[in-house]
């Protein structure tokens, strides 16, 4: 009986420990073995400077997918980014995708502002409304140019 008890406690310890290891490696380090179903959307930006493959996409601060590809549209000279979303995230047609920076110095990420129409985007569709990267240099030069104008 005493023996049983000891084995039971040790067993419990091992299970709890393994659960902690699993939580760290699967949920936090994202080791797959588990991969949610997902679908792709594309979005065109006039400037995607600083956005990298693997950057995350969030809605209201929650991660819902990541940027899986960025290429140049050689005719329009636009940046075409492919986004991969978790399957349970449904987006309407008038969704806005904007490139933002985490903090002042942080990485670029994509912020999705959900729209209001009933028409939903399906795999392969394009998010029409986009906001490009805001470059601090551009902002600064615009400000200088404007102030030149006035004087």
């Amino acid at each position: 009986m005493k023996r049983m008890n000891l084995n039971f406690i040790v067993g419990l310890f091992i299970i709890a420990g393994m659960a902690a290891v699993a939580y760290l490696s699967v949920t936090i380090a994202g080791v797959s073995g588990y991969s949610k179903d997902n679908y792709q959307l594309v979005a065109k930006f006039s400037n995607s400077s600083g956005l990298k493959k693997g950057a995350f996409i969030e809605i209201a601060g929650v991660k819902v997918g990541k940027v899986t590809n960025i290429v140049l549209d050689k005719e329009a000279f636009e940046s075409v980014a492919t986004f991969t979303f978790d399957d349970d995230v449904a987006l309407s047609e008038d969704t806005i995708a904007s490139i933002r920076t985490a903090g002042i110095l942080g990485d670029k990420f994509v912020k999705i502002s959900p729209g209001a129409t009933d028409e939903m985007l399906s795999s392969g569709d394009e998010i029409i409304e986009t906001e490009s990267s805001i470059s601090i240099e551009e902002l600064v030069s615009k400000y200088m140019f404007n102030s030149d104008d006035k004087s």
Partner: peptide, 23 residues
């Protein structure tokens, strides 16, 4: 601090190599 930022921030930064190093 937003819960999403806390949890996803973790998940986006930590890779398997970090966990492995700890182990």
């Amino acid at each position: 601090v937003s819960e999403g930022a806390y949890l996803t921030g973790m998940a986006d930064t930590i890779v398997w190599n970090d966990v492995l190093m700890g182990l």
